[in-house]
Amino acid sequence: MKEMILSEEELVRRCIGKDRHAHEFLFNQFYQELYIIAMRYLSDHHNAEDVVIQSFTRVFKYLKNFSYQGPGSLGKWIRTILINEAIRSLKKRNLIEFNDEIKHMDTQNLEANALQQMQASDILRMIEKLPTGYRTVFNLFAVEGFSHKEIADKLGISESTSKTQLKKARHQLMNNIQNNMNYGTI
């Protein structure tokens, strides 16, 4: 493929003009990132592929509606599309289960330094192993930076449920990490 160095604005303009090379460039630029995010939410390669395909199709279809708001805005817009698609896919497959029941949680004091020293891939693998409800809320809140209100709107749940799910997700994640560190799997 011919090397292209394009600004986001130019890329968007060309993609709107049905430039096939621009489409391919956009795909290559965002494919890996989108696939990883999809895996974080769906924890399944097949579903992740489907969501990535659906997201890029939507991106190319609705790119004319995108308004450029400075560097990074295109990536943010595309990631939002992918997250929405991932949530839609989870809802469609009835994979999200939210358990409001609060159990007694033993808080394990994990040192920040230990977490910092962990490999990103290990942490992400731990996140992928969380139950769907926990994982979704944790990703939306901790990684994407959505508020509980936004999460509640997106998932169709109450804010308190979102908070509970986040708390449980954090607790389970910390326990898993601690256990793995204790058993030396990480």
């Binding site: 895996m39 920040a112 977490l115 990103a120 891939s121 990684v143």
Partner: peptide, 26 residues
């Protein structure tokens, strides 16, 4: 460790390049 710290560290790690699922991705 505060929950805020956990979130911050995980967010930072998630944005880093990692070779997780690289084979499947390619």
């Amino acid at each position: 460790m505060e929950p805020f710290d956990i979130d911050r560290i995980i967010k930072q790690k998630a944005s880093e390049f990692h070779g997780l699922h690289q084979q499947e991705i390619d």
